[in-house]
Simulated assay, not measured.
Amino acid sequence: MVMAGVWAAMGQVQASEPSSLYFRCSMTKAQYATVMAARPGEAAAFTDWQQWFDSKQMYGGGKVDTDDLRPMPAETLSQIAGGSRYGSLSEYDEKTGVWRFALLQFSENYGAMISMLAPLRSVAPYCAADSDSFMLVYSYIWGDGDNAYLTLNGRSQFAQAPTPAQRKEADAVLAKLLEASEG
């Protein structure tokens, strides 16, 4: 598993327990195929990581360093997001034009979060501008609050908080993943 190696190699700043990740982007079938075949976006393409770190309380120095900005060891985004893993979901609905990606147990390490957030943030230009596309990293299982909320409508940017409807959507998908993992 690609993410296990990345997380093991990074050990800087951490939240208390693993957070969950939920991502939803509206795009055409052709855009989805392009995104999945694309090289994963790199963290260095975004300049707001330190601002995000500064908005959080965390253990360690709280500074983004070069290790946090290392690219994912994958050739395509499909290698990161595709495939079936325990506690995960990656599905594209051709009827609605929506790609959903979720990880029930994502990471407790803010530095390691960057390695997955960067490739997903790079999808933002493909998300329909009026689609309410977003990504949420939060403590679904443990209830320790939000780690990151990003809007993805044409561009990726950190924002204050998800709408109640977005949180309800993320909760519903993660609840299904949790139920499946317990059964």
Rank of each mutant, 00 (worst) to 15 (best):
C25G: 03
V35E: 01
Q12N: 06
S133Q: 08
R70N: 09
R155F: 12
G61P: 09
E42I: 15
M72Y: 02
P162K: 04
G62A: 14
P164H: 06
S90W: 08
S107Y: 04
A43T: 11
V98Y: 03
A33V: 09
M36S: 02
A112R: 01
D68A: 15
R85M: 15
A180P: 04
Y59W: 10
T47N: 15
T163N: 02
G61L: 13
M135T: 01
M27E: 00
M36I: 01
S55C: 12
V35K: 01
Y138K: 06
D144I: 08
W52R: 05
P119F: 04
A102V: 07
E94V: 07
L117D: 08
S16V: 11
A9Q: 06
Q105M: 14
F158R: 02
L117A: 13
M58P: 00
R39Q: 08
Q50L: 15
A170S: 14
W142L: 14
A43S: 12
R24Q: 13
S139Y: 15
Q14M: 11
A30H: 11
G61C: 14
S131V: 07
D93N: 05
E94H: 03
F53I: 04
T163M: 07
Q14C: 10
A102E: 02
K56H: 08
E17G: 04
F158Q: 10
Q51F: 10
P162F: 05
K95P: 02
F53P: 02
P164M: 12
Y22D: 00
A170H: 03
P164D: 09
S115P: 07
E179D: 11
A37Y: 02
P164I: 10
A112V: 05
F134M: 09
Q12P: 00
L104Y: 10
Y22N: 03
Y86V: 13
E91W: 04
E75M: 05
M116H: 08
L136H: 08
L150T: 00
Y22F: 14
F23V: 00
W142D: 15
I141P: 03
L103M: 13
A74P: 06
F158Y: 14
E94P: 00
L152K: 00
V173P: 00
L104V: 10
A33M: 11
L21K: 01
R24D: 01
R85G: 13
S19R: 07
I141Q: 14
G61K: 13
A15K: 07
D68G: 07
K176N: 09
A30K: 09
D65R: 04
R100A: 11
G82C: 12
A4G: 07
A45Y: 14
